[in-house]
Design a protein around this nucleic acid. Structure first.
Lengths: 199, 199, 199, 199
DNA sequence: AATGAATGAGTATTCATTCAT
DNA sequence: TATGAATGAATACTCATTCAT
């Protein structure tokens, strides 16, 4: 009895294209992500891209979707292994370590976010996946506050902190001198205060 | 004795080009900001652009610089008219109202921020002007805390809040359902707590 | 003893391809008749086309040949059932009704006629099959004039009327307001006068 | 006092493009009329074509329009110089000589007629210009019959003969052995009979 | 007999830039 | 200052064909 092959094994060229698109956008930006460049990165012919994807934009969207899903998966798996009580600290440690580890991911997301301002289709993808990631984060905060399901405050906090971290990433990507540690501390304070308001 | 003419009067075509570049990027994004489109917006011929600017990128950089200077000027003039004691509240009211009022400015900045990831020249411009804007904001926070010059904590807070607001902008531009009011409250809390830590 | 299978039964895929090519050319024109489109119409894979035909042009030529043979067959069978004396009237009634009934056939022929101007191979096919169809028509005219074999005048009349009807088709296909009835009457007059010149 | 420059002198590149498009379509067919080929024929760069015409189709349409206008002008000027009474004979002599002289023009028209079956825009152009040419021919027939303005029968005859001649052209272009003289005689008979029906 | 993947040449179009006037 | 014409390289995408399976 043979196990079902993974998607990557079932269609290796398609996977290589998605990874190549991600790599090129992360390294050189969306502007440089021509079909020719992506195909070269994937080691294939430009024409073949259009066999696997109807359009260059379809490939880029697939790459964005894939990278955001991977990000969400990382957040989820961290939550699963973190003991109750340390959730909030773990989130921040995580986010801050991710700042350095996942620079490529944020770079790609920034590129798409800028593009999305004028591409409604892309904007919808970003919106959907941001919502999913925010929901994931809200669960973390709810758990930190001892709730099993997030309430409105948890949702708002999750959306705000996610957006704030994105902004911090943007600033840090542009200027490595950005005070990352202080930013983490400030935002962590904000989260704690919001979750447990003073009497 | 004749007064020095304003820059706009001294070289009206150059000014029109800068304004047109800003308008096109704000409305249609960097991708659509071709020389042809910008020239049409300015009411001139594409060829003439190269008389006033050596390259298209030089024009775009000028437009970015101009828009950031305008932003900085707005922040500065607000600080001048705000009575001491209300500085912090004013900053937030201002930033939050600006969220809606200055959407074009943020749109343009986001477009350039994405571009800057792979354009060192642009990145330098953004870095310089971001630093200036942060400095301006730090002065506001210092004043709110009764200091005449900002200390390190003021600087870090200014950098963080500026970045956080940028991220909130990004999220809100992508999804109008973003909880803008809650984000403002959370970040204001963070600022107050940071400026006046509990004993 | 088994009867010989019809061509269509002997090689159904090949037949489907020929019919699909005809359908696509009739509906969307030669320009749109790509291998991909024809294969989709036939419900097969583009690659398979090259198993049944060496090139795309060979398939198109087969489709043209097939459609002209079908047309010739229709003319022949009409002649067989038309009583002597009514041949001429039948030919015109037939041609004029064919104008509306066989629009697809004419559409395809027009497309190929244009193509044939620069494709000697196609031109030869059209020449051969036009000659056969003209011969068929000449027999009709000879019969109408009481001759068992066509003479030169019958041949010339057949060639001319066939060409004239083609031109009328072309005009009518381009502009449905074309006076089809008057054209039929004019050409019928011409035929009668030519077959039975005044003394 | 300088005379206004002719259009050709005022914009020579545009004119060269129109002539080159016509020449390429006449010589090699619409299929081969790529921007690259046309530009090479005109001695310019492909990119420049798009400076003078928004689209390849716009250029081809201009070429078609120009050639049909030239044809109409030829018909008109013949009518002007032909003495009354000889109009009909002149028309046929003319048409038959045109068969050989204007082969390029007919070739181009056939190519466009085939294309027009699936291009509504082109079809409209052909319709308009065919109507104008038919109107011109109807004037010739009316004059031959001693009328100053064409009646319905003149119109129908003009439309029919024009279409019939187009069909004859098509046949003759495909097969030089086509009996052109007989066709001319047959159609001339038809015209005379239609214009002056027997009592 | 049939598929799906791959290629390489070809398509129209856009672009920043140059330059003579 | 300003224009209009011109270039050459780049763009996404299509196509007929090939081939291993």
């Amino acid at each position: 009895m043979t196990a079902a092959p993974t998607p990557a094994k079932r269609n290796p060229t398609r996977e290589r294209l998605i990874e190549a698109a991600f790599a090129v956008v992360a390294r050189e930006g969306l502007e440089a992500a021509s079909v020719k460049t992506i195909a070269a990165e994937a080691g294939i012919t430009p024409g073949l891209m259009h066999y696997h994807f109807p359009t260059k934009d379809a490939l880029l969207e697939a790459a964005l979707r894939r990278s955001l899903e991977a990000y969400r998966e990382r957040v989820r798996s961290r939550r699963a292994v973190t003991p109750p009580g340390g959730q909030l600290a773990a989130f921040f440690a995580d986010a801050r370590s991710g700042v350095e580890a996942d620079a490529d991911f944020f770079r790609v997301r920034l590129a798409f976010a800028a593009q999305a301002l004028t591409h409604p289709g892309l904007a919808a993808v970003l919106r959907d996946l941001n919502a999913a990631a925010t929901e994931e984060t809200a669960l973390t905060f709810a758990a930190a506050a001892g709730r099993s399901t997030p309430n409105d405050r948890d949702q708002a906090l999750a959306a705000t902190l996610k957006a704030a971290f994105d902004g911090v990433m943007l600033a840090w990507l542009n200027d490595p001198a950005f005070p990352l540690d202080a930013a983490g501390a400030i935002l962590e304070d904000a989260a704690q205060r919001w979750l447990a308001p003073l009497p």
